[in-house]
Simulated assay, not measured.
Amino acid sequence: MKILVLCTGNSCRSQMAHGFLQSFDENITVCSAGTEASGKLNQNAVKAMAEAGIDISGHTSDSVQKYLNEEWDFVITVCGGANESCPAFTGNVKNRLHIGFDDPSHATGTDEFIWSEFIRVRDEIKEGFYKFYTEEVKPQL
């Protein structure tokens, strides 16, 4: 089972989803990528995931170009806000899904509020991807 999580920057939401999916089942192959990969991880995302017991600090922010020639069981977009356009994946994919989330890296306000947005979105990603895992992935394993 191969799953690609796709967003624009590949620094925050797709990285968190990648970390959670891999934690649910280490036998599935999970990658994440961005159409405009930032080349680095959002440090608040790394910190929020560490707080949840998952280390994503070794992940890399990769361009979707790296994965276009591979076959995927699922490609999942995670962009959320109305101002964001979800990237299209033109590679070989059995199932395309969208599970959208707000981008906490766009939050403004106090440090406390910004941090609370990272925690909120992290928890929403965990819940959304656990539902995906139990309903879509696990039955196929």
Score class of each variant (00 low, 15 high):
1 M>W: 00
2 K>V: 00
2 K>M: 03
4 L>N: 10
8 T>A: 07
12 C>R: 03
12 C>P: 04
13 R>S: 10
15 Q>M: 10
17 A>W: 03
17 A>N: 01
17 A>G: 11
20 F>P: 03
20 F>D: 06
21 L>E: 05
21 L>V: 11
22 Q>N: 11
22 Q>I: 10
23 S>W: 01
33 A>M: 08
40 K>S: 15
41 L>M: 14
41 L>F: 04
42 N>F: 01
44 N>S: 11
45 A>L: 11
50 A>I: 13
50 A>G: 06
52 A>F: 03
54 I>C: 11
56 I>N: 01
59 H>S: 07
59 H>V: 12
66 K>T: 14
67 Y>K: 15
71 E>N: 13
72 W>E: 13
72 W>Q: 15
73 D>V: 12
74 F>T: 12
75 V>C: 06
80 G>W: 06
81 G>I: 04
82 A>F: 08
84 E>L: 02
85 S>I: 15
87 P>S: 11
88 A>P: 05
89 F>A: 13
92 N>T: 12
96 R>L: 04
96 R>A: 04
101 F>S: 02
102 D>K: 02
103 D>C: 02
104 P>I: 00
107 A>I: 03
108 T>L: 02
108 T>Q: 07
109 G>H: 01
109 G>N: 06
112 E>H: 03
112 E>L: 07
114 I>Y: 03
115 W>M: 11
117 E>W: 04
117 E>S: 08
121 V>Y: 00
121 V>Q: 07
123 D>A: 12
125 I>K: 01
127 E>S: 14
129 F>Q: 09
131 K>D: 10
133 Y>C: 09
134 T>G: 04
135 E>S: 10
137 V>K: 14
138 K>H: 05
138 K>T: 06
139 P>Y: 07
